[in-house]
C-alpha cells in the first residue's frame, strides 16, 4: 500500500517534469511512429509477394509488430529512464542520496521516473493489435486473452531483470551506456518473427537477450499459436530472473562507493 502511494507521487512529479519539454517529446513520438510506419510498409511490400513467411500470415506479423512496439513503449516509459538515471547517479556519486532514504533502494531507484509521453506508443500499439485482430477475424477467446496478459506480464518482469543486471554492472565498469546501445540493436530483431533467423541467432535472442520471451511469446499467445502451458514457462523464467537480478543488485550495491570515497 505504501509502495503504491509512493508510486503515485513518483508518477505525478514525472509528469510535471516532462511537461517542460513538450516539443521535443512530441517530435520523438512522431519519429517513433514513423519508424513503426516504415516497418509496416516494408512488411506489407514483402507480403505482396507471398501470403505467409515461416508460418506467419500478414495480420499475425502485424500483431507481432504491435507487441514489439508495445514493449518498446513500456520499456521507454517505465524501465529505461530509471536505469539511465541510475547509471548517471553511480557515475557522479549522487546515488548516495537514494541510499539514505527509508525505502528499499531497488524500488526507489527503478520506479522513480515515468516517461509519460511514451504512453502514445502503448496506445498506438494497442490500437494496431486490436485492429489487426479484427482483420484476422480471430475471436480472441478468454484463454487466449489470459495467456497473452500473463506472458506479457512475465515478459515485463524478464526485461526489467535484464536491465537491472545491466545497470548493476555500472558498479564495476561505470560506463555501460554503450552496452545499452548494442542491446537496443539486438532488440530490433524482435520486430520480425524469430523463425526467420538462423538457429544460433534464434538461441541468442532467446537466452542471451530474451527477445523471444518478451515479444514473440506474447504475440504468439495473442494470435493463438501457443497455449496456456507456455505461459507457465514464461512465468517461471520471469520469477527466477526477478529473484536473481535482485540478488545481483544487492551484491553489486556493496561495491558502490560514493564519488569521493
Amino acid at each position: 500500500m505504501r509502495y503504491l502511494a509512493l508510486f503515485r507521487v513518483f508518477f505525478r512529479t514525472s509528469i510535471q517534469t516532462d511537461m517542460e519539454y513538450r516539443v521535443d517529446f512530441f517530435s520523438r513520438i512522431i519519429a517513433s511512429l514513423l519508424a513503426l510506419l516504415t516497418t509496416m510498409a516494408g512488411l506489407s511490400i514483402a507480403f505482396t509477394y507471398t501470403s505467409s513467411i515461416k508460418g506467419w500470415s500478414f495480420p499475425q506479423v502485424m500483431v507481432l509488430l504491435s507487441v514489439y512496439y508495445l514493449m518498446d513503449g513500456l520499456i521507454e516509459m517505465f524501465i529505461a529512464p530509471n536505469m539511465r538515471n541510475i547509471m548517471a547517479q553511480v557515475r557522479d556519486g549522487t546515488l548516495d542520496f537514494l541510499l539514505l532514504k527509508p525505502v528499499p533502494v531497488q524500488f526507489l531507484a527503478t520506479f522513480r521516473t515515468v516517461n509519460i509521453w511514451r504512453i502514445v506508443n502503448v496506445l498506438v500499439a494497442l490500437g494496431l493489435s486490436s485492429y489487426t485482430i479484427g482483420k484476422l477475424s480471430l475471436t480472441v477467446g478468454g484463454v487466449q486473452a489470459l495467456t497473452f496478459i500473463v506472458t506479457l506480464a512475465a515478459g515485463c518482469g524478464i526485461i526489467y531483470s535484464f536491465w537491472l543486471i545491466l545497470v548493476t554492472l555500472t558498479f564495476w565498469f561505470v560506463r555501460v551506456d554503450n552496452i545499452e546501445q548494442i542491446i537496443w540493436q539486438a532488440f530490433e530483431a524482435g520486430r520480425y518473427p524469430i523463425e526467420i533467423y538462423p538457429v544460433w541467432l534464434r538461441n541468442a535472442l532467446t537466452y542471451v537477450v530474451p527477445v523471444a520471451f518478451i515479444i514473440t511469446v506474447p504475440a504468439k499467445a495473442l494470435t493463438g499459436q501457443i497455449g496456456l502451458s507456455y505461459a507457465l514457462v514464461s512465468v517461471c523464467v520471469s520469477a527466477i530472473a526477478l529473484l536473481l537480478s535482485s540478488l545481483f543488485w544487492r551484491f553489486g550495491l556493496k561495491f558502490y562507493t560514493g564519488a569521493s570515497a
Partner: peptide
C-alpha cells in the same frame, strides 16, 4: 534484418 525477412519470403 532486411536480408533475413526477404530470404524467408523468397523461400516461401
Amino acid at each position: 534484418l532486411g536480408l533475413a525477412i526477404w530470404s524467408a519470403a523468397t523461400e516461401a
